[in-house]
Design a protein around this nucleic acid. Structure first.
Lengths: 345, 345
DNA sequence: CTGTTAGCGCCTTCAC
DNA sequence: GTGAAGGCGCTAACAG
């Protein structure tokens, strides 16, 4: 591996000049600049990141903008743990990480927090754009040099380094397959549209319905649940499902709140052998899975999402590597039998 | 974070002396040694690995002892790719990796290769001990200072740093659950005992049988397949299964060779709607899964096994961190619908 | 515009 | 036993 010293020798200049070219610090004649760049290219120079870190006093500065960790049944906490794990792996490099948490049921809190984060002009931002409308409305406030990684849900029109998450439609189809297997009989399957405005979650229901309608004789009935932060809504919705469907055979809830329904409808689930499928291996859901009230969970590797998000930012800003613009994570199937293997320690 | 220079100042000695103490290079008086160690402890000194790597000319030397990558339907190749991926991540550190491949159907080749590897006195060894008897017989030939990580299958009595792999019994139980779900009817389920002598694989059949017998009315019939490298054996075994079981409803093959059976018995599988469950997301199996001839695969994250194995060795030898002695990886369930999400790029 | 130089923290050699 | 000094490759301030 060639070093700047060797490049300097080859070019007949000093290392200071080479350094200036490599960092585009200007004040170098066009001629020597081109000479140096040609050598860099020809020899395949890559800076020694270890030496660079040792000498460099500059601290990379990253901001994480995401919902409060405790929201969505602490789903976000798992993501945060993934980010922290990756930070630990990178602890010999100079990184600074600031969290900006917002209330995912309050657009204004997002706006405030995003504005704060952007003010610090971070090198990179990890953003969970669950509030799509607000996120898009502020998209152009991201400083020129700041790179953004979106995780968990994508915003196609957002100018970003990369997106990390699941293919929602295929994920829904997989849930459909599991539903069709676990309830042999036909009947009515209730689908809860938890955040109709959240494209990412809504599309899961589309994949699910598609699979069921294409492959089974079951009927599907959709229920809207607009206000996920209101327990009364859950109760009303559960009640409605119970009352309206004598032949209920399945229940599909496209996010982590499946345990509320499993709990509220426990008696019917047992009596009528209703199959229940939901999302996310959060504590409350694991308990219900273990009890047998939930049959399957689809997991979206939240920890891995966090790890990758930070890794990508690091590789892009510090190592200056190219990053894939889209990373779809595995659609994990979790049932009682393999649950244990998915729980750390 | 305190540096050796600061320690030297506190102790009123030079950094050379501090260094000698930290590396137990001797030639330091008992008194100053104790003084320095007490400061180290009190201040919580941890060496700066970045600076250390930069100055250190020493190259860490690791050996990987595993079956030929092309064996077992190229299962081992996936493991190797995982190791290489981790090596790439650690590329700014000085690591040397040598592969020692053996023929997993030839004990002598293992012995030769292992002996060669050990001769180089590596800092660490990644070992896939599929040939349990041979591996144990040479276990005491590992040099004192060499750390060993076992992956894929464990040897409880082997003196090792860590084991990375799956819980075989639970993995078999999960397969049993999937079998019971995917074939609604009862009937006979054929279980192939592929390597009866390979504890790790055999135990999967135990888990599988346990689940089926505890939870269904199906009968189980076990077939031995001792010589996995003989295609004629596969044919004979498949033929036998086909002839002997009019009411065949399921087929469980506890390793990657499931695609051979799926292929040989394709007609019966289609006609009688036999459920087929096997292991490992290798190319040949993915094709059959896509076609619908295999219903489910259990995956054991071979890539991740490789990554972790190297990461553990690195963390233990270079960073001198403590490592968990056992790491069970997730029991992944793969079907046609989520297959795509598990395939890289 | 360009070259020189002093570190970053640790490791290693050599001299006393 | 101990200390001084050079160097790993890169960065950045400074002098010209």
């Amino acid at each position: 591996m060639i070093t700047i010293k060797e490049i300097a020798e080859l070019a007949g200049v000093s290392i200071g000049t080479v350094d200036r070219v490599l960092h585009s610090r200007g004040r170098v004649s066009e001629k020597t600049k081109n000479l140096i760049l040609s050598i860099v290219k020809k020899e395949g120079y890559r800076k020694n990141i270890v030496a660079s870190q040792l000498s460099n006093s500059r601290i990379s500065n990253f901001a994480v903008i995401m919902p409060l960790p405790e929201q969505n049944d602490r789903f976000w906490q798992i993501i945060q743990m993934g980010i922290e794990a990756e930070k630990e792996r990178l602890n010999y490099f100079k990184l600074k990480l600031d969290y900006y948490f917002f209330d995912r049921f309050d657009g204004n809190s997002y706006i405030k927090v995003f504005t704060d984060a952007v003010k610090t002009e971070p090198d990179g931002i990890i953003l969970a754009p669950v509030l799509a409308v607000e996120a898009m409305s502020l998209a152009d406030k991201v400083p020129e040099k700041t790179k953004v990684v979106l995780m968990n849900s994508d915003l196609p029109d957002f100018n970003k380094l990369s997106y990390i998450g699941q293919d929602s439609f295929e994920s829904g189809r997989t849930a459909g397959k599991l539903m069709s297997m676990s309830n042999g009989k036909s009947g009515t399957i209730a689908v809860i549209d938890v955040h109709p405005e959240d494209y990412h979650i809504h599309i899961r229901t589309e994949g699910f319905k598609k699979y069921i309608l294409d492959n089974t004789n079951s009927k599907i009935r959709t229920y809207l649940l607009p206000a996920e932060n209101d327990m009364e809504e859950f109760k009303r919705c559960a009640q409605l499902i119970d009352n309206e469907n004598e032949d209920l055979s399945g229940l599909f809830i496209p996010n982590s709140s499946v345990h509320y329904f499993a709990d509220l409808l426990e008696k019917s689930i047992k009596d009528k052998k209703i199959s229940v499928i939901g999302y996310d291996l959060v504590e409350a859901n694991a308990v219900m899975l273990e009890k047998g009230t939930i049959d399957f969970l689809i997991n979206q590797q939240p920890g891995k999402q966090g790890e990758l998000a930070l890794e990508y930012l690091f590789r892009s800003t510090v190592l200056q590597e190219r990053i894939v613009e889209k990373k779809f994570l595995p659609i994990e199937i979790i049932c009682r039998e393999n649950l244990e293997s998915y729980i750390e320690r």
